[in-house]
Design a protein around this nucleic acid. Sequence first.
DNA 1: AAAAAAC
Length: 546
Amino acid sequence: MTEFSKLGLSPTTLQAVADTGYTTATPIQEQAIPVALAGRDVLGIAQTGTGKTAAFTLPMVDRLGSGRARARMPRALVLAPTRELADQVAESFGKYARGTKLNWALLIGGVSMGEQVALLDKGVDVLIATPGRLLDLFERGKILLTGVEIMVVDEADRMLDMGFIPDIERIFKLTPPRRQTLFFSATMPPEITRLTQQFLKDPTRIEASRPAMTADTIAQYLVRIPSSDPKAKRTALRALVGREDVKNGIVFCNRKSEVDVVAKSLKQHGFDAAPIHGDLDQSLRTKTLASFRSGELKLLVASDVAARGWDIPDVSHVFNYDVSHHADDYVHRIGRTGRAGKKGQTFMIVTPSDDKSLDKVLKLIKMDPEELTLDIDWSGVGSGGSARGGRKTPERAERKAPERTERKAPEQTEQAEKPQRSRGGRRSRSEPAVEAAAAPVDATAPEPVAAAPAEQTEKPRRTRSRRGSNSEAAPVAAGVPAVSAPVPASAAAAPAAAVAVQEPQLTQAERRGGRKGKSDDQAPAKGSGFGDDVPAFLRRPVPVSS
DNA sequence: AAAAAAC
């Protein structure tokens, strides 16, 4: 346990840390901050939840000191793979740069360029960006990167997955070679190693496993259903969500189209749910995420845009509507819960056609999640290979609730179906699964769910042919800490406490009001070109350097 | 099998 005060940070920065209420540094902060303060390069092998963001933000704030950026000449650059992650870094930066004259800008796609350009013209010390928008602005002559003193690459392996490596390489080459580089990746596939060898100078390598990924904090359950029919899956999902005492949960789907359909279906059945994925308008994405974070929205139905990195400290449930095709995505998905010392429940709906993906997941997590049985009458549903699923786990067959033979009239079932409350009490592994919902759910009933996309604004798909393939992604087992993987001694010593230090949370009012310290939802929206839909992070006032 | 990221 190391206090922040022992890491060499300046009094101003320490005060900002103290204001967030935290005193103890996480293992990665403890190791990275002194190295970064000394001006040396850092190669951090770490995931979200380890305190990574503060590990690079604090020394960056400290080293940049007071702001003196010239127009279009940023002094520091932070690159993140998704817009929400970039926004999260910006929030963190806003907290820690409090009390300095540093200013910053968030450069992401999906929002108007005008305000970003105006900020750049005034002179910005720190750019926090997604690669696409940054290069776009660069090509328009709005940014010069020759003054960059510190460059941060966050979630590099995810950038690889997303085909950003050529962009990252290009950005590296646009910055001066004497810059300091802080580079973070959860895994180290060969392509990432090559990149670090090319662009980092004698880096100090720091590793920190995900501290909270243990069976103690994340309970995993598996629900087998006999059909792969989407209607049957939605029925199972509703029964599952209904039986749990869900404070707030994320429902993961593999496809964006499925996200829309599932969200709409849940809404129609009385659940408080909203979709989020990359084809939705950015202002809606921002609004939806903010409302989920604040606790207004209960169920977030998401693509894997939400699987990694987002720091939502208090997610009680994760539902995998689809089994991830890539096992490491599963680990990231369930990692959205069980954070900051809280407990999380995770469920995975498995159909007969998911065998292959499930095998990969089970192999990676090195455990057998307990199987739950939903009280659903599947008779009349196409078997879809149920026999295969049954044969696979014969010893569990007797735990299934007896099949109901009586069937309700379809319309009656649909009307009557409402979210069921949990009966409380977690089953132990040795106990048979209890009957789930009070009322049986008829899987064969027609469902009033239109297959049409939800009413949200859909953006046309972008096509980017110049992107590389994903084929070079790391083998899943390479560096992704499995749930059961041993945790280094330093992390194991204080798992929950260490996590809590990471990225202290702003209250909703603070987030909205930024440094003004009070809510100003309406005021700054005027004349911004966003109507009333100004994303929260655009409302945050940017401190102007003297 | 997908998702994500610029106009």
